[in-house]
Computed example of a mutant assay.
Amino acid sequence: MNTASDYLEMTVPAKPDFVGVVRLTISGIANRMGFAFDEIEDIKIAVSEACTNVVNHAYSDAELGQIRIGCNLHDDRLEVTVVDQGKSFDYNKVTENLGPVDGKPVEQLTEGGLGLFLIETLMDKVEISGEAGVMVMMTKYLHRDEVEENVDRTSPASSQ
């Protein structure tokens, strides 16, 4: 059974200025865990999108909202949860309009839909709950011991 070895949590104001703080923190955690550069970039973008959705959609202008970010560090994966206590949204309603992006200009994607599409594309597993506020749980698996096929190898055709 694989249990979480470390857990950390931070709460930041739901303001654009703090999304960068979250990005830097997540980047440091993913780097420490041994993720590759490209994977760290993917994680940073996905978490930024989730936080930006909170900043733009969760709270009314009068509310002083917060974003809670939880990180579960396992041996084989990083689980990042982004939670707000703002107004819930209907995930099914947002995603039913998504569909494939192929052939659709970016301008035609519904607001919030592109962020969800990006998050689901960049992360290995995404779960969204809209009970009290919205919770987005994103998982990225760590492939530490795997070697990509044909990396640093010459093909038989090129050695002639």
Rank of each mutant, 00 (worst) to 15 (best):
T3S: 11
A4L: 09
S5A: 09
S5N: 09
S5Y: 02
D6T: 12
D6K: 14
Y7H: 12
E9V: 10
M10N: 03
T11P: 01
T11N: 06
P13Q: 09
A14C: 05
A14F: 05
K15F: 08
P16W: 06
P16M: 11
P16V: 11
D17I: 05
D17E: 15
D17Q: 14
V19F: 04
V22G: 02
R23G: 01
I26K: 01
G28H: 09
I29V: 15
A30W: 01
N31Y: 10
N31A: 15
N31V: 07
R32I: 06
R32Q: 14
R32F: 10
G34Q: 07
F35M: 05
A36K: 15
A36Y: 10
F37Q: 09
D38A: 14
D38T: 13
I40Q: 11
D42Q: 09
D42W: 01
K44Q: 15
I45C: 03
A46P: 02
V47F: 09
V47R: 04
T52Q: 12
V54H: 01
N56P: 00
N56W: 00
N56M: 08
H57Y: 15
A58G: 10
Y59P: 08
Y59R: 09
S60V: 10
D61Y: 04
A62K: 14
A62T: 14
E63K: 07
G65Y: 03
Q66E: 14
I67D: 03
I67S: 05
I67T: 07
I67A: 07
R68C: 07
R68L: 13
I69L: 15
I69N: 04
G70R: 12
G70Y: 01
C71K: 03
L73T: 08
L73W: 00
D75E: 15
R77T: 00
L78K: 06
E79N: 11
V80R: 05
V80P: 05
V80D: 07
V80E: 04
V82E: 03
D84I: 04
Q85L: 08
K87I: 01
K87L: 03
S88H: 08
S88L: 03
S88Y: 02
F89R: 04
D90E: 08
D90Y: 03
K93C: 00
T95I: 15
E96Y: 03
P100Y: 05
D102L: 15
D102S: 14
G103S: 07
P105S: 10
E107N: 09
E107R: 12
T110C: 02
G113K: 10
G113L: 08
G115W: 06
L116T: 06
L118C: 07
L118V: 15
T121F: 05
M123P: 02
D124G: 09
I128T: 14
S129V: 10
S129R: 11
E131Y: 04
A132D: 14
G133T: 07
G133W: 04
V136F: 11
M137D: 00
M137V: 15
M138Y: 05
K140L: 01
Y141P: 00
Y141M: 10
L142P: 06
L142D: 02
L142A: 03
H143D: 12
H143V: 08
H143T: 11
R144Y: 08
E146V: 11
E146L: 14
E146A: 12
E146N: 06
E148H: 09
